[in-house]
Every structure is written in C-alpha cells, then in structure tokens.
C-alpha cells in the first residue's frame, strides 16, 4: 500500500514539474552557440585597414604601395612578391585575446592569371615593413629567390591554367591563415602581415598572377581578411 502511494506521488510530481521546467528554459529559442566574424577590407586608397604593396626584382629599389594592382610573378631576375597586412584593431567590437579563432581566410581578387598552373605560397612576416617604403632590396625576407623555403609557408593555393584550384580571373582567391591570426589575437606573435610569392621563382618564362589592391578603390575587389571566432 505504501509502495503504491509512493509511486502515485512520484507520478503526480513528475507530471507537474516537467512542463514547468520546460517552460522555464525556453526550449524554442535557446541559443546554443555564438560566433562573430570580423571582415576587414581595403576598400579604398584611404583605407587604413590594409597595407599592401608588391616588390619587383626588376626594379629593386622601387616601391609600389600606391599602385592599383599587386603582382606575384615568377621569372628569373624579374620576380615579384606581394606584402599585405591588416589592422586587426579595426575590428569592432575588438577581438578579445581570449577569443577562439575558428577560421581566418585571406582573400585577394585575381584579375590576371598565369598561363600555367602556379603554386602561390603565403608566409607570415616576422619583422616590420611599410606600404610606402617596402622594395625588393629592403623586403623582410631578403632578396634570395625561393626564400623562405616552402616548408615554412602558412598556406598555399594554385592559380592559373587547369588543373589549378583557381583557373579563372575576376574572383576571390583564398588562403587559410587561421593559425597566424590566432597567434596575433592571443598575443603569441606580432602582426606584420604576410608575404606571397610563387613557389618556384626560378622560371625562364614569365608566370604572372595579378591581384586587385586597396588603391583600386573598388569594394567589390578589395583585399580582405575574414576572421571567424567565438567571442
């Protein structure tokens, strides 16, 4: 008898409590996860979000910080490399050092592609450079070709003729740079941006991939960095 009463009481209690709890936790609108993405774009020459320039082995003391395009070119004695840096402090709200960066992509809009499939490497730069003064002769990684070695690259993709990943012009080309951005956000490393070069700079034939620069004043083609993180 006592056991029957106890079971009955349990049943009544459960029936009364479950709906109340379900109502209390607002099941229909529970937010389970939250992300934020900061998109920095070099939309104009006046943009402070991006510093971008290319250096030219053929004009080793020239600076291209104000040109509207940037070249990555392989050609013995005429190599060209891109330098680019984004000001992460312009993200609003600021990305906290404790944030977890789940993805970061460097996007450049390609306007001309090589007639052969080329591998384009991205390297994290470890020293300072300036958009209006960087040249082939004073670039952070020095003037030796194929330096730094590909093994030190952050990321790579292939651009040019088939079977490249990117075979057409007028589209964004992306490199995954999550680890670099995470190290900058956390403070483990200092943000000096990236250098992009052809994976093999020793070439008897000109292999040119050209990208839109912030100085093109075109938001549809702006260099951009897309950072997704958990706040």
């Amino acid at each position: 008898m006592i056991r029957r009463l106890t079971l009955a009481l349990i049943g009544i209690t459960a029936a009364a409590v479950v709906p109340a709890l379900a109502s209390g936790v607002s099941v229909a609108s529970s937010t389970l996860d939250t992300y934020r993405t900061c998109v920095l774009s070099g939309v104009s020459a006046a943009s402070t979000a991006v510093a971008d320039a290319f250096v030219n082995q053929g004009s080793p003391n020239a600076n291209s910080g104000t040109t509207t395009s940037m070249d990555v070119q392989a050609r013995t004695g005429q190599n060209r490399r891109v330098h680019i840096r984004f000001d992460l402090t312009l993200c609003s709200p600021a990305v906290a050092s404790t944030a977890t960066v789940t993805d970061a992509q460097l996007d450049l809009f390609v306007t001309s592609i090589a007639t052969a499939c080329r591998t384009i490497d991205v390297f994290r730069v470890a020293t300072t450079w300036a958009e209006t003064t960087v040249t082939w002769n004073n670039q952070p990684f020095g003037t030796a070709v194929d330096n730094p070695p590909a093994a030190q690259r952050t990321a790579f993709t292939t651009i040019g003729a088939a079977p490249c990943t990117y075979t057409a012009t007028n589209q964004y080309v992306s490199w995954s740079v999550t680890a670099d951005v995470a190290s900058w956000v956390s403070g483990a490393a200092t943000n000096h941006g990236w250098m992009l070069r052809d994976d093999s700079e020793v070439s008897g034939t000109t292999r040119l991939n050209r990208f839109s620069a912030s100085e093109a004043n075109n938001a549809a083609r702006a260099p951009r960095l897309v950072i997704t993180y958990r706040p």
Binding site: V27, A28, S29, S30, T31, L32, D33, T34, Y35, R36, T37, C38, V39, L40, S41, G42, V43, S44, S47, T48, A49, L90, C91, S92, P93, T228
Partner: peptide
Amino acid sequence: ESMRIDLTVSK
C-alpha cells in the same frame, strides 16, 4: 572597411 557578422545557432 570593417564589417561584422554575428552568427547564432539555436533551437
């Protein structure tokens, strides 16, 4: 120049 995307996953 600086944009934000807020993303939520919810029931």
